[in-house]
Design a protein around this nucleic acid. Structure first.
Length: 473
RNA sequence: GGCGCUAUCGUCUAACGGUUAGGACGGAGCCCUCUCAAGGCUUAAAUAGGGGUUCGAUUCCCCUUAGCGCUACCA
């Protein structure tokens, strides 16, 4: 049974790389009819914030990908401690009584890594028990076997065979002196207890995996499969950091810029993975079925943002593709919600609204466009852009528009065809080019110099408003 | 410093050891056209460097370089 987990730590908003990790976990689980576990890794009490947790929920909620089980590590501390003390009892771990500050001073980074505090590692069981009983604070470290050193091996689903010598692994901490588990301990203890079958996470954990294997083995638990994902990096090759790159790395940036969750998911999937058949725009269904670890890359992928534009151009393109190909009935509610957030309420019934959405979406690339460029379709209060004004100022244009309004008012039909007939006839009678009248109409009706076919615009604005707006210019 | 991972157009990527190194975004141009998009067509743009192995290397091996990760009582 496939069981995977997404384990964010609430120390900032949901980051674009975390979101992709979640998506890949989700795709894999859904493809294999497994169980998706959301686990909040909140053992670092000093850095966790409630705001961050909410922001993570916000991001996940927007993505719309579900999970089946939910846990918080902070509610499972007894389990973590038990695993640490079991390791201690088995002699696979030991107490280190040196204060944390002393470690920092002593760790030489000149040649070779710091491996352990030899005197602490050598402490007798009795001495260790005695000092602990006396209330002296300690950290529990894993006793990595180095004499003789041996190789730890595992086959990563993405990166292939991995090997590391125990001589290169330090005695990492399991339990902090304040009694809280470290990431390594909590993560493994929970993965064991929750029967996680696949650990799918960022490549930054590739070398930590050896430590995790030590914990799994020490606890006598079977190893999950490991799949590490290449990292998402900034255009300058640096790691995406919340501090350095700001909100660019938050998923909410895309949401707030009018992205469809599906388009964003699609975009993220194409970073570090490809279906190998030149497909770009894909549905969730297609992504789920195409996904496999073999097709995940091993090199990091750049998110192509800049100071001027936080949005990757390819993401924008994908968004416009989805925007114009999604079934209108699926898109309409999303647009309605976006409009509401901008204080706009569509005219008419659902069928009319869908007609409008279907017509104008072909020119838009984000949901925001509906309430900006598309404002005139949903409100009588819209600005006339300078270039639109020029079209209205064409000689005789206003007078012709007034006349057109009268003709439309007296015409029994109001369809693209009937309006086109009225307009072309008028243009012909007055000896002006139809284009002049067409462009002036669009300008008057929408306040914009550009947009859909003018006759489609008429039907989207509606007869009464068309007459009103043409007379008002 | 130690250990590990990675390296194809500006970016995302494709290519059983044999291709004119393909596609997409973005750029340039043309067509279409009531405007703007879309769409169609065309175009510029890449195998980090050096050694091997091989009849033949983007592909396999080694070195160099560069980037990234781990090297915390962060995750």
């Amino acid at each position: 049974m496939t069981r995977a987990r997404f384990a964010p730590s609430p120390t900032g908003y949901l980051h674009i790389g975390s979101a992709r990790t979640f998506i890949f976990n989700w795709l894999y689980v859904r493809k294999h009819q497994g169980t998706m576990v959301l686990r909040i890794d909140d053992t670092d009490v000093d850095r966790n914030t409630e705001a961050s947790l909410n922001s993570i929920y916000d991001g996940l909620d927007w993505l719309g990908l579900s999970w089946d089980e939910f846990y918080r590590q902070s509610e499972r501390l007894e389990l973590h401690r038990k695993v640490a003390f079991d390791l201690l009892d088995k002699g696979l771990a030991y107490r280190d009584f040196r204060p944390a500050s002393a470690d920092i001073e002593d760790k030489p980074h000149g040649d070779g890594p710091w491996l352990c505090n030899p005197d602490m590692r050598a402490l007798s069981k009795e001495e260790s028990e005695r000092r602990a009983a006396a209330g002296e604070p300690f950290v529990i470290r894993y006793r990595v076997r180095r004499e003789p050193a041996y190789e730890i091996n595992f086959a990563d689903e993405v990166y292939g065979p991995q090997t590391k010598l125990t001589a290169d692994i330090e005695d990492f901490a399991l339990l902090r002196s304040n009694g809280m588990p470290t990431y390594h301990l909590a993560s493994c203890a929970d993965d064991i207890d929750l029967h996680i079958s696949h650990v799918i996470r960022g490549q930054d954990h590739l070398s930590n995996t050896f430590k995790h294997i030590l914990i799994f083995e020490g606890a006598g638990a079977p190893l999950p499969r490991f799949a590490h994902l290449p990292l998402l990096i900034a255009p300058d090759g640096s790691k995406l950091s919340k501090r350095k790159h700001g909100p660019v790395v938050s998923v909410t940036t895309y949401r707030d810029n009018g992205f469809l969750a599906l388009a964003y998911i699609n975009f993220l999937c194409l970073l570090g993975w490809s279906p190998k058949d030149n497909r770009e725009q894909m549905s969730l269904y297609e992504l789920t079925h195409a996904f496999s670890f073999e097709s995940v890359h091993r090199s990091n992928a750049v998110v192509n943002f800049s100071d001027e534009d936080p949005i990757d151009p390819k993401a924008l393109w994908l968004n416009s593709q989805h925007l114009r190909t999604l079934p209108v009935s699926t898109l309409a509610p999303v647009v309605r919600k976006s409009l509401a957030e901008h204080g706009l309420t569509p005219y008419g019934d659902e069928a009319f609204f869908e007609h409008v959405v279907d017509t104008i979406r072909t020119r838009f690339s984000t949901l925001i466009d509906f309430s900006t460029k598309g404002r005139a379709y949903f409100s009588d209060d819209y600005p006339i852009e300078p270039q639109a004004l020029e079209k209205l100022n064409a000689s005789g244009a206003r007078e012709l528009l007034h006349e057109l309004a009268d003709r439309i008012a007296s015409h029994p039909d109001f369809t693209e065809t009937s309006v086109e007939a009225d307009l072309r006839k008028l243009a012909e009678q007055r000896g002006v080019k139809a284009g002049v009248l067409i462009n002036a109409s669009r300008a008057a009706l929408t306040g914009q110099p550009v947009g859909p076919s003018a006759f489609a615009v008429f039907t989207c604005i509606g007869r009464e408003r068309v007459i009103q707006r043409l007379r008002m210019v």
